[in-house]
Amino acid sequence: MPTETTPDRIAVHGIEVEVLRCGAGAPVLFLHGFQPAAPDARFLELLGRRLQVIAPSHPGFGNTPRPKDFESVYDLLHLYTQLIEALGHPRISLIGASFGGWLAAELALRMPSRIGRLVLVDALGIKVSDRETPDILDIFNVHPDTVRAATWHDPRNAPDYDAMEDAELIALHRSREALSLYGWHPYMHHPRLAYWLPAIKAPTQVLWGASDGIVKPGYGQAMARLILGARYAEIAAAGHHPEIEQPDAFADHVIGFLAR
């Protein structure tokens, strides 16, 4: 039976955070990457069949305001710590995709007694290779065609700017500004996070799009090796967004791990 995705707002420290809610069951917070989850995203509906999904838009993304000087991952981590407290579930699981994976890993370290399970999807946040080998494609400083090719297994899944409405394009660029503030320097990672990953207590599933060119599967494997007991799986025919390119396989993996 299809589940309905409904928009909502949760006030956290004076910030009206836009959230999508979907389904019923064990609570799970979905932390998005470069763009917030779309209200009609199939993966939300699929997850909602077995889980209670709460998908917020980070400040500056979607319709969530970004207060003046709210510009850092430090701010985001305080926001989500408060939001998790406000939701009130004794335990909640986290799905962190891309940039949101960095936040999810940090939150699992900060709130070990509140975070049930952790799913990291093509997650950013750590430094793996040597100092002259970038792990994460610089989406701001390389040609947009290169970024598109690296992001999608099938480039036809990329957003079509010509087909998008003004408001959607404005929101897209606003998200890009916010992402730039949060992740410009050091680029999309914290130099010390890899050191702390082994301290994550939550059972962890690392999922990776086999064709991801933003962060390659080898990065995901390294991340999984750093988290004790973490499981690693690749999703075929998917790039940086397996939740969009292969929503069914994605949901099967997530539900298999979270709802068993």
Partner: peptide, 16 residues
């Protein structure tokens, strides 16, 4: 496409 180079309101003209 550089963040900050133009205000978000300019995006429709820039992206299409």
């Amino acid at each position: 496409f550089l963040p900050g180079a133009a205000p978000p309101q300019a995006a429709p003209g820039l992206y299409r």
